[in-house]
Amino acid sequence: MSTTTQERYSKSDELERSRSRPRTIIGTLLTILAFILLGIALLPLFLVIIYVIIRGASRFDLNLFTEIPPAALQEGGGIASAIVGTIILVAIASVISIPIGVLAAVYLSEFSSGRIARWIRFATNVLSGVPSIIIGIFAYGVVVLSTGTFSAVAGGFALAILMLPVVVRTTDESLQIVPQEVRWASVGVGASDFHTVLLIVLPAALPAILTGTTLAVARAAGETAPLIFTALFTRYWPSGLFQPIPSLSVLVYNYAAVPYENQQELAWAASLILVLLILLTSIISRWATGKSTY
């Protein structure tokens, strides 16, 4: 019985490897193909970084960081006002989104259970998928229309909405890593929930929260779509929270497609700053946490 079945399998008696076996060849080809596709996937990363460095470095001098952007046919100039503007915008966004996001995450991870938390987490994830341009028109409606002016506050508000789901998620994840014993120890000596969370659990999770939030801030600094009709743009130094304000990302957008070489060069230089910011924060946070971010 066993012999008849044995014969129906096209088993050779060979146990040895053979390069000419179809499955060996197919396997090798598939492996090569997969690695080529991985290479193709990573190629743009290097190309973009290299181009941004090559094109942006030529304007990397003191003027870049001290002067305001030039008008259309002017020579020279820098992007100092846009750097300051981006810092202001990101600061406003952080002031709004970090406290709200952290406390919301505290609720999710410490005080809630089951269905409500699941729904809120779900909604947070969906919120992080809302196109940034939609956040832009939303902020326009909420802030610009009601205050009657494009402003730093409107831009900061838009960026805050954008950062919010990221802050909630990273904080939520960081809090969940804190071992349960730490909470028990605190509750065990008679601490209230309030003290346990603020004095024990949050500090324990602080490094992870900080890393996650830093990444969120760096990414917000590169966002453009929510700013172009909330913060708008100006060449000049920021003059108030309820005035239009320049930013690096909108500068890149505005100067990207203009025919003036001087402004194009500044667009590349601003891109270089944004890319360096992202690279540095990503690498440092990876080094700090010692694990992959996803």
Binding site: V48, A225, Y253, L274, I278
Partner: peptide
Amino acid sequence: AIPSVVYGLW
């Protein structure tokens, strides 16, 4: 992580 607008410029 590379900003969208940088991809656009590139």
